[in-house]
C-alpha cells in the first residue's frame, strides 16, 4: 500500500485522474471531453481544483488587509495560526468549549474555532497581537501582569480578548458579573481569582481603549 504514496505524494491528483480515466473507459467518453482527460493526465486538474475549491477572502486582521484564498472548511482559528502565523490565538479544544481561541470580529468577541474563515469576508478581526500599540500594552495586558492573571499563559490571550469585550459590553459591574461573563474562558492553572482582580481594576478605572 505504500508504493503509491512514496512514488506519488500527491494522491489527490491520482484520485481525480483515476476517476476521469475510469469514466472514459466505462462511459466511452460520454461525459468527459478529451481535453479534461488530458488535463488530468498532466495533473492540471489539481491546479484547477485549487482554483475552484477555494474561496476568495478579504479580511482585515489587526488593521492589516489580507487578500486570501481559503478552503471552505478552514476555521478562522486555523487560518490565523497556520496560514497567517498569528499564533497568539490558541487552540484549546476546537469545539467552542474553552474560549482559548477568542478573538474580536467587528468588535464582538467570537470563538474563532467555531467560525469558518470563509464567512469572515469583509470583516475586521482583532487578535491578541493587535491589542497593544507598539510597546504600549493595553491596560488589561498590564493588569494581567500586575495581578499575575495566568501561570502557563496558554488561555491568557483568550482571557484578555474576552475581558476587553466583557468590560466594553458593560458586564464588569461586580465580581459576580465578571465571573459570569468570563465563564466561557477556561483556565486550568486556576488563575481565576487573579484574572477577576485584573478585570475589576481596569473596569473601575474605565481604562479600556
Amino acid at each position: 500500500m505504500n508504493s503509491h504514496t512514496e512514488n506519488d505524494p500527491c494522491c489527490g491528483g491520482q484520485s481525480r485522474r483515476s476517476f476521469l480515466k475510469r469514466s472514459t473507459a466505462t462511459a466511452a467518453i460520454l461525459a468527459a471531453p478529451p481535453v479534461l482527460v488530458r488535463a488530468a493526465e498532466k495533473k492540471l486538474d489539481e491546479q484547477g481544483a485549487e482554483y475552484f475549491e477555494k474561496l476568495p477572502l478579504k479580511i482585515e486582521v489587526n488593521g492589516k488587509p489580507f487578500s486570501l484564498s481559503v478552503e471552505p472548511r478552514v476555521t478562522l482559528l486555523d487560518l490565523l495560526r497556520e496560514q497567517l502565523h498569528l499564533t497568539g490565538t490558541k487552540k484549546g479544544c476546537d469545539y467552542g468549549q474553552c474560549g482559548a481561541c477568542t478573538v474580536h470580529v467587528d468588535g464582538q468577541r467570537v470563538l474563532s474555532c467555531l467560525s469558518l474563515a470563509g464567512m469572515q469576508d469583509g470583516k475586521k478581526i482583532t487578535t491578541i497581537e493587535g491589542l497593544a500599540s507598539g510597546d504600549d500594552l493595553h491596560p488589561l495586558q498590564e493588569a494581567f501582569i500586575r495581578h499575575d492573571g495566568f501561570q502557563c499563559g496558554y488561555c491568557t490571550p483568550g482571557q484578555i480578548m474576552s475581558a476587553v469585550a466583557c468590560i466594553k459590553e458593560g458586564h464588569a459591574g461586580s465580581d459576580a458579573e465578571i465571573r459570569e461573563y468570563m465563564s466561557g474562558n477556561i483556565c486550568r492553572c486556576g488563575a481565576y481569582p487573579n484574572i477577576v482582580d485584573a478585570i475589576r481594576e481596569v473596569a473601575q478605572k474605565g481604562g479600556v481603549k
Binding site: I128, L137, G153
Partner: peptide
C-alpha cells in the same frame, strides 16, 4: 516581582509547541 515571561504571555508572543513554523 512580576512574572518574567509575563509580557510574552499577554501579547501572544510566547511560542508553544505547535506554533513553530
Amino acid at each position: 516581582i512580576d512574572r518574567v515571561d509575563g509580557k510574552a504571555k499577554v501579547t501572544g508572543k510566547a511560542d508553544y509547541v505547535a506554533e513553530h513554523d
